[in-house]
């Protein structure tokens, strides 16, 4: 992982924590933690991606009373899978990154839903087919903006 990617991902995580924990904005703020994880995973490899996801998921689960560990599991799996995309796709063009971020965020939400406490999770159709895709597009847009503003040029350089 080069310094630009490290700084970008650290900045995204810190901003995510500020927006979600310090300001308590909830879904009004985009999920920048998963954006940081997806970008970092492609630079770290699957073990590094899974470990990063584990740590970020643990931070998110610090306030989860009912389904503790759901974010840890989802982020670990997404980190590992995102890293494997390195072997299939090289480069980080804007269209690829957009699809990658949307798919990663949506996949994470679906994984969280799968391991969520069955009594408290929302209906699958409402969550996975309507709410989550919208949140995924929002997160991807925020991620692309951050990428364009703070880390111009190829990330792999």
């Amino acid at each position: 992982m080069n310094l630009r990617v490290l700084l970008l991902c650290t900045g995204l995580v810190v901003t995510h924590l500020l927006l979600h924990v310090a300001l308590g904005l909830g879904k009004v703020a985009p999920d920048l933690a998963v954006v940081a994880l997806l970008i970092a995973s492609r630079a770290l490899g699957s073990a590094g991606g899974a470990a990063t996801g584990f740590v970020l998921g643990l931070l998110e689960d610090a306030f989860s009373v009912v389904s503790f560990g759901a974010n840890v599991f989802a982020m670990s799996v997404v980190g590992a899978v995102a890293a494997r995309t390195r072997e299939l796709f090289v480069g980080d063009s804007i269209p690829f990154l957009a699809v990658f971020l949307v798919a990663g965020k949506w996949g994470r939400d679906v994984l969280v839903w799968l391991v969520w406490d069955t009594g408290s999770r929302p209906p699958f159709n409402d969550f996975a087919l309507l709410e989550s895709p919208l949140l995924a597009v929002y997160a991807a847009a925020a991620g692309l903006l951050a990428r364009l503003v703070f880390a111009r040029g190829p990330l792999s350089r």
Partner: peptide, 25 residues
């Protein structure tokens, strides 16, 4: 192996007893 270990660890965290989860939180 490392990846599998981390994911296994996440499954363990998911199934920890409530007391341990409370301590971690």
């Amino acid at each position: 192996l490392l990846t599998a270990g981390v994911i296994l660890g996440s499954l363990i965290v998911l199934n920890l007893p409530p007391g341990s989860q409370r301590s971690i939180r």
